[in-house]
Design a protein around this nucleic acid. Sequence first.
DNA 1: GTCTATAAGAGGATAGAC
DNA 2: GTCTATCCTCTTATAGAC
Lengths: 199, 199
Amino acid sequence: MSNKTNDMIRYVAFRLFVEVGYEATNIRDICEEVDIKPSSLYFYYKSKEDLFFSIYDEVWEDKINVLNNVVELKHNISPSMKLYFLYKRLMEYYSENIIKMKFLLRYHLFPPEDVAATIRDKYREWSNKEDRVIEEIIIQCIERNILPYDRDLKDYVHEYKTFERGQLIEIIISNIRKEDREIDNSWLRFWNCSMSNSV
Amino acid sequence: MSNKTNDMIRYVAFRLFVEVGYEATNIRDICEEVDIKPSSLYFYYKSKEDLFFSIYDEVWEDKINVLNNVVELKHNISPSMKLYFLYKRLMEYYSENIIKMKFLLRYHLFPPEDVAATIRDKYREWSNKEDRVIEEIIIQCIERNILPYDRDLKDYVHEYKTFERGQLIEIIISNIRKEDREIDNSWLRFWNCSMSNSV
DNA sequence: GTCTATAAGAGGATAGAC
DNA sequence: GTCTATCCTCTTATAGAC
């Protein structure tokens, strides 16, 4: 269902969910900003929780699409460059969508009690899709001897995700776009110090 | 003011503030667990906000004490080792006090609207104390040519704090104590790749 | 689809007795 | 210090008219 009222509800709710949080966001405030009465919102969503998860899934879907687009576009280049381009594209995406990333970080780190269980389930599902993309690229790196095979696949994936999360959190906390040079420097340090050198 | 009831109030409130958050923590729930009536809590604290900040300051004070203890104990060793021991001690402290660190992370990243301004002010004050300790050690490193002087002091401090925050977040997210070997490996990567080599 | 009206309950906080 | 009793406000959600 997509019309002007609904789009507006989703936009306002998303912003409030990020900035003041699920518990402190109330239906009245959303509706006031959209300029409708609370009862009208319940025509589109059966509850606050329903509205929340509708937005939650949309944010994840958007992120996964970015991953898939990179893999699709770069399918015929070397796997190490593929991982590099994936990383670069994500840094760009994070910088342009800080608020979406803040949303995910907020609800994964500090889920409200009454939606915590559902968040955990949905998170597991979505992040599995994410992991599979990374895994596939790293498998290719190992197979072609670009990465030493004396280290576990899971280990490499964890190393990459930790690195990427660190960069993401820097972007969220500093709230500014990082420079290209800085992004590349971080990559080189990561690739040379954390991945290629076995510890 | 310290007696059994008050200690219990603080303990329960702290736990709820971390786990379910400020907004979702209500006076009735705290009091039920402490086994007192809500009106009794207001004998100790004039408001929910008052209770919160009393705990907030205590958590910070505890952390700053750890920093000062290290500096005091290691005042006569080389500054690079001093920074190393500071880092080691903090990792130990973080691992043993994950819940306290989760508390600080939660309210610095996502402060509730009605206490956000006060948190920001208090945060600035406390983290300044923290920065001065780090700064002093790094100044010594630069003066003794342990760290290249072609890089800015602020730059080094930022580099260290970013590194330390990354480690902290890994501990909070994984929720497990890191092994000594892993902690040392991270340090070496940080010291050799991020600090000594100018970029 | 959007409204008015309102149910039903939870929340922070206080007055005043003991 | 701790209690009983209560005030007042805010919140999600629904019934039913238009």
